[in-house]
């Protein structure tokens, strides 16, 4: 490869990465913020996720399909972080410091949080990816490394379990009137 073609390739990659980052930075940040105890930790997830994306830019799908790919990476980064395998890249220190002062404290005693906490990690993650990140079953399948048809049946089961846990905790919603969200419920 000549120097010129190398430079052109680098320039193209940088342009693509900037667009990817600018489009999806808040998606990944939101995913992390919803799952960490300390807002500042979310900055590390964002940094590590996009660092992986930069290093594997050729693997990142084009267009909206990148959403599920990025959340799949973020999911693994978060799992490593929870296992104490956090990588301190130092890339996001200033973002972390800002997040620590920007984000308000969340209410602790929330019946839905408690019900979610009683579910398996897999059930909870499926429900949150669908309900909070708004991913379709196909996107969840990509993010979690499984098949869409499996996601659909697991989502249905997870919703049923959440309903049971909520009811046990005194939830006042009427399970009989629960409407399915077409994109989430099928099996």
């Amino acid at each position: 490869m000549t120097d010129i073609s190398g430079l052109m390739e680098r320039s193209h990659a940088e342009r693509r990465f900037r667009a990817l980052f600018d489009t999806h930075r808040r998606l990944v940040l939101g995913y992390a913020l919803r799952r960490v105890d300390e807002p500042a930790d979310a900055a590390d997830v964002v940094a590590e996720t996009f660092l992986v994306a930069w290093r594997k830019l050729g693997d990142v799908p084009e267009g909206e399909a990148a959403r599920a790919w990025l959340l799949g990476v973020a999911r693994r980064v978060l799992a490593n972080q929870r296992r104490g395998e956090r990588r301190r890249t130092g890339l996001a220190d200033r973002l972390a410091a800002e997040l620590a002062v920007t984000m308000p404290a969340e209410p602790e005693d929330d019946v839905v949080r408690r019900a979610l906490a009683r579910l398996t990690e897999d059930d909870r993650e499926l429900l949150l990816l669908a309900g909070w990140e708004g991913l379709t079953p196909s996107e969840i399948a990509v993010a979690t490394g499984t098949l869409a048809v499996t996601v659909r049946s697991r989502l249905h089961r997870a919703r049923r379990r959440l309903r049971a846990e909520l009811t046990a905790l005194g939830w006042e919603g009427d399970p009989a009137t629960v409407r399915s969200i077409a994109q989430e419920t099928v099996a």
């Binding site: 969340e106 309900g131 909520l166 629960v178």
Partner: peptide, 14 residues
Amino acid sequence: SLDDTLRRADPITD
């Protein structure tokens, strides 16, 4: 509904 309940529990909206 369950779906609304779950969404309202989202700690940070889009």
